[in-house]
Write a protein that binds this DNA or RNA. Structure first.
Length: 941
RNA sequence: GGGCGGGUAGCUCAGUGGUAGAGCGCUGGCCUUACAAGCCGGAUGUCGCAGGUUCAAAACCUGUCCCGCCUACCA
């Protein structure tokens, strides 16, 4: 790295150039590469990356995945693991097909005009041109997967795995074809799995009532429905067997008003709730899940009234050709004209909608492929119960168990063209053969055709953890990275929203095909929402592109993307409403940089289900990045760090203290990342670096290194510790902030044993950096900090200008404390801004006129911090302050006395709690006495 | 309807039995020569509500209200 290309440290941190440069460097040095080599003795660790959709472009969810997974993978890598982050892209069946169909639409064509083969060519062409843009964007975030191993779920080897899996399931009797009621999306024209149906709650609908006339006699039965058009497919009306209102009608028939058929009255205690509505239910077995079951119980006819596009077919009689919505109106009108309508009531209903198209899903009878789930689900539940896979946070275990406990068979076939075509061949006489390759006897000439359907996108996703490693072949990668023994670490990190879609299915298939769980831990995190807590969606215009946060963007540019086509003013209003803190930033986002974005995303605990993205928060962490930048500059330029000292063993307090604080930070950070509490690691790094290192240590360093400092003898200690801690801090933060840490780490003094990149580690460890806790140094420094803070507070409260210097005195009866304060007096002088070195005296001596006292309680006894106010502060202000103080203390005294007067407390509470309370009380009383004294002294101001 | 989670400072959230915390915001003072993207101070809470257990509850128990999310076929 030539120094010419590196940015000038004296300027504020500019992320973009730095980020691009280091990413290229990492790729060049093969930082991300994992090894399959059986001879490689390093322990293995793997994270299968949730493959983003090929149609996708980077959104905040991806940024969150990248951040958390990259932090984990870098941490393991730095600790010497053979760490594989397996990247990939998902072919995203429906989504991709829709995109390309829309493209065709603009050319005035449909996929049917092209034919299957041509259409698929177009999709592949599209994929080659615009698919996978996302992996470029992931690089911007600093993601470090082993790109050489990128898999696309439609790659030939993935297809082979899919076929293998399907055939094995079929051969084992777990994949079967059946005709039953399934969820059908008329827009996508395909079957859907239960999971792909979303229910929209609280839609305002109505309950329409109408009458069926009884056949052969007077009388009628009134039924209620939210979907009047389905009455065209009614093949029964059900009543409760015990309902006295209808006893006389049992076994009789009703006249269908539009169709030439009689509708039987059946009794069914399962379907019918006597108390609801009229107690009579119309039964449409072909278009309602309950009715379907009822139909099976009573052997009712199943009449499908819809075409695949949702229009009425021949069974719709006079209404044939109408779509569902218009048919509803027409049927109601026709019933009314026949005098059968019996009014409507408002009714709240939940609409099942297709996850992709948003169209209302229609239950249809259809022949599909199903995968048996129950056995696999039980195994998957057991694996978590056994602890073979741990779900973190644990609260999700219940949800996981609940879902798998009630799971239905998985409808895996889709009537699409884009996807893995089902490896089954249909013969001329209805025979079916399932095979890895077309069986030789199943020729087209002999009338055999391959099943036209493709598999649910999630089918290939479910094979991801082992298919990407070469399964069904026994590859070295599979042996090394699939966690067949508990020592092979493997984590699956993702949003909880795909726990069922993906995680549970991987668990089931992993156990089924590999006989062992696909990962040792499942790490679930929350969903990123806008600043007001709303889900990000195109409609709401609140989607933020992570790249705009990283590189900066004008709001006018952003809103063109959030609500394309909408008037700018409207889009801007929505955007600013969704992000109030952005609105306060003016007209644009500055370039926050990838590190700031990552750090922000890293600070949310996984228990946080909704992560509100506040641009203001990013700003705070951008400041932090800059703080690191400046602190490093100061260390290099001012402190003149040139040498690195391994295992420093300083004698002086400050150096001992910062090493101890650092070791504490190292322990917390390691514990945090290990337990998937990256937020704890990030917060501790932030706190340590800013508060301990910058606010205290670097300030103290200045006093040690000041010209003519009596502390000059500590200079070597202080420098050695700083070099050690600074280099270590950068490594500590690298998993969360890869770029700035690399940029700075390259410049700081470091041991010769370090490799070319900070990414190679080592990560600060419990054994090295984390072992040096120094409780004595921490205790001493705490006292010093408290004493200095006390003086500062007094100065501030009395509004003594920093330009003016005040006399300060420390008083203590403890020799140890006196010694300590004597040692740090010179530093304290600067930090408290006093004219002369603070004097050290015994408690109880005479106090100068106009002196205010603050007491710092320590284990070795109290330290009184005396600040002379004479000539600096006016008397009235001082007296008023004393009054306020007296009031506060009196209140505290009362409360404490009351507590101590309680017999129960004194007798039952642990001794140390009682002692503490007593100590507290005596301190309060002493403080009270000093205040009285101060009042007298104030008179002399 | 069932399940899960949450209600703590203005905001976003930590905090699972011992004197209420952080960041941001607010506020007073400082251009103290690394950083004003900064430094030194300060204020702020009936810890949703009501009971209970306990010497002691934000935390544990019961009830209740509100808010999310997941799930379900009330016609």
């Amino acid at each position: 790295m030539s120094s010419e290309s590196a940015p000038d440290l004296s300027k504020p941190y500019e992320p973009r150039e730095v980020e691009e440069r280091w990413y290229a460097f990492w790729e060049k040095h093969g930082v991300f590469e994992a090894s399959d080599d059986a001879a490689d003795a390093r322990p293995a660790y793997v994270i299968p990356m949730p493959p983003p959709n090929v149609t996708g472009s980077l959104h905040m969810g991806h940024a969150q995945r990248c951040t958390l997974e990259d932090a984990l993978i870098r941490w393991y890598r730095m600790r010497g693991y053979n760490a594989l982050w397996q990247p990939g892209i998902d072919h995203a069946g429906i989504a991709t097909q829709t995109v390309v169909e829309r493209q065709l639409q603009r050319e005035g064509k449909t996929r049917h005009d092209l034919g299957r083969a041509e259409f698929l060519k177009r999709v592949w062409q599209w994929k080659a041109e615009s698919g996978g843009r996302i992996s470029v964007q992931q690089r911007v975030l600093g993601a470090s997967p082993d790109w050489r191993r990128t898999k696309f779920t439609m790659d030939p080897d993935m297809s082979r795995a899919v076929k293998e899996a399907f055939v094995r399931l079929y051969e084992d009797g777990n994949m079967y074809r059946a005709t039953r009621l399934i969820n059908w999306c008329p827009t996508c024209q395909t079957a859907l799995s239960d999971l792909e149906v979303e229910s929209e709650e609280g839609a305002n609908g109505e309950l329409f009532e109408f009458a069926y006339k009884v056949d052969g006699e007077d009388g009628e039965i009134v039924v209620a429905t939210t979907r009047p058009e389905t009455m065209l497919g009614d093949t029964a009306v059900a009543v409760h067997p015990d309902d006295p209102r209808y006893t006389s009608l049992h076994g009789k028939f009703l006249i269908h008003p539009f169709m030439d058929r009689k509708v039987p009255i059946v009794t069914d205690a399962i379907l019918v709730d006597m108390k609801f509505g009229t107690g009579a239910v119309k039964v449409t077995p072909a278009h309602d899940f309950n009715d379907f079951a009822t139909g099976k119980r009573h052997k009712l006819q199943e009449i499908n009234i819809f075409n695949l596009d949702g229009t009425l077919n021949d069974e719709g009689g006079p209404f044939k050709g109408l779509d569902r919505k218009r048919a509803r109106t027409a049927v109601k009108k026709a019933l009314d004209e026949k005098g059968l309508a019996r009014g409507t009531k408002p009714h709240q209903l939940t609409l099942p909608r297709c996850q992709r198209s948003g169209d209302v899903v229609e239950p249809m009878i259809s022949t599909q492929w199903f995968c048996k789930m129950q056995g696999m689900a039980e195994a998957a539940i057991k694996a978590v119960k056994d602890g073979r896979t741990q779900i973190i946070p644990e609260e999700w275990v219940k949800t996981y168990d609940h879902f798998l406990g009630e799971i239905q068979d998985w409808c895996v076939s889709r009537q699409l063209w884009w996807g893995h075509q089902i490896p089954a061949w249909h013969g001329p006489n209805g025979e079916i053969k399932v095979a890895r390759e077309r069986p030789p006897e199943c020729t087209e000439e002999a009338g055999w055709t391959q099943d036209p359907d493709v598999l649910d996108t999630w089918f290939s996703s479910a094979l991801w953890p082992f298919a990407t490693l070469g399964w069904p072949d026994k590859t070295p990668a599979l042996a090394k990275f699939y966690p067949t023994n508990p020592k092979q670490l493997s984590d699956l990190e993702t949003g909880y929203d795909i726990l069922f879609f993906w995680v549970a299915r991987m668990m089931m298939f992993g156990l089924y095909f590999m006989k062992e769980v696909p990962f040792r831990r499942v790490l679930l995190s929350g969903l990123i929402v806008d600043e007001t807590g709303d889900k990000m969606s195109k409609v709401k215009g609140n989607v933020i592109d992570p790249l705009d946060l990283i590189h900066g963007a004008e709001f006018t540019e952003i809103v063109k993307k959030t609500l394309p086509g909408a008037p700018e003013a409207e889009a801007m209003t929505k955007f600013k409403k969704a992000y109030p803190s952005a609105a306060a930033m003016g007209g644009s986002f500055p370039a926050f940089g990838a590190d700031a974005l990552r750090f922000t995303l890293a600070t949310f605990p996984p228990s946080n289900k909704r992560i509100a993205l506040a641009p203001k928060r990013l700003e705070g962490y951008r400041h932090f990045v800059n703080k690191i930048w400046n602190a490093t500059r100061f260390s290099l330029d001012q402190v003149k760090l040139t040498a690195y000292v391994e295992n420093p063993a300083p004698k002086s307090l400050y150096a001992r203290w910062i090493l101890s604080r650092f070791s504490n930070a190292v322990r917390i950070a390691n514990g945090g990342i290990e337990g998937f509490r990256i937020d704890e690691a990030a917060n501790e790094a932030y706190r340590f670096f800013w508060n301990d290192l910058c606010d205290w240590y670097l300030e103290l360093t200045k006093t040690v290194l000041a010209e003519g400092s009596p502390l000059a003898g500590q200079a070597d200690d202080v420098r050695a510790a700083l070099a050690y801690v600074l280099e270590g801090s950068l490594r500590l933060m690298h998993p969360m902030m890869p770029y700035v840490t690399e940029e700075l780490w390259q410049r700081v003094p470091k041991p010769a044993s370090r490799k070319a990149s900070i990414a190679f580690g080592p990560y600060p460890s419990l054994e090295v950096e984390g072992k040096g806790g120094d409780p004595a140094a921490e205790a001493s420094m705490e006292i010093v900090q408290k004493a200095i803070s006390a003086a500062r507070t007094i100065r501030s409260e009395h509004e003594i200008s920093p330009a003016k210097f005040a006399p300060v005195e420390f008083r203590t009866d403890s020799d140890a404390l006196a010694k300590l304060l004597g040692e740090v007096a010179f530093s304290a002088k600067t930090l408290m801004r006093t004219t002369d070195l603070p004097t050290i005296a015994k408690v109880g001596g005479p106090r100068a006129a106009g002196t205010v006292v603050s007491v710092v309680a320590t284990d070795a006894g109290p330290i009184e911090v005396l600040v002379g106010l004479k000539g600096l502060v006016d008397k009235a202000t001082e007296l008023a302050r004393i009054e306020r103080e007296v009031k506060r203390i009196d209140k505290d005294i009362q409360a404490t006395e009351k507590k101590l007067s309680s017999k129960a407390f004194v007798e039952k509470a642990p001794k140390e709690v009682v002692d503490e309370a007593n100590a507290h009380l005596s301190q309060l009383k002493a403080a009270r006495a000093r205040l009285e004294e101060s009042r007298t002294l104030a008179d002399e101001l």
